[in-house]
């Protein structure tokens, strides 16, 4: 994939909005990869968390849209706990979810009626509340 970097990319409204929503200054990131190293979902992510931060830093909205990274983030906060620059990466993931959830045209990622019966009968209520809020419009 070729990324196009154009003049003004660093101050796109996208990056600014991401900074605002997450409350994190992603420009302080020095790409050490500690977030990715400790992320329990990194092995199944198409792009690891530190690279998502990098793309966001470069204002690459298009490249970020459609990635599975932030949907696979379980907000376990391991990255926040260990980031040497004190960045809450989980907040950046949440901000990306907020930005990309509403404009999605595909069907919802989780349909309650499609969940296995045995699972539905036992899964904690809190999972449905939190999960449906995360995955559905």
């Amino acid at each position: 994939m070729t990324l196009r970097l154009e003049r003004g990319t660093f101050t796109t409204t996208f990056t600014q909005r991401l900074k605002e929503l997450s409350g994190q200054d992603l420009f302080t990131c020095y790409q050490c990869g500690k977030c990715s190293a400790g992320c329990p979902s990194a092995s199944v992510m198409e792009t690891p968390p530190h690279a998502v931060v990098r793309l966001a830093w470069l204002g690459q909205e298009k490249a970020l849209r459609g990635l599975n990274t932030y949907w696979l983030c379980a907000a376990c906060l391991t990255c926040d706990l260990r980031c040497p620059k004190g960045i809450d990466v989980s907040r950046i993931m949440e901000a990306l979810r907020v930005m990309f959830l509403r404009p999605r045209e595909e069907p919802d990622m989780v349909a309650p009626d499609s969940l296995p019966k045995d699972m539905l009968s036992r899964i904690p209520q809190q999972a449905l509340v939190a999960g449906l809020r995360k995955y559905t419009k």
């Binding site: 790409q31 500690k34 990715s36 190293a37 400790g38 040497p84």
Partner: peptide, 20 residues
């Protein structure tokens, strides 16, 4: 890449990292 965690597995250590 920076290391997130080190833990013991049997008598060896496991370094959990990312090759960025």
């Amino acid at each position: 890449g920076s290391v997130s965690e080190i833990y013991r597995k049997k008598d060896r250590l496991v370094v959990r990292a990312e090759d960025t």
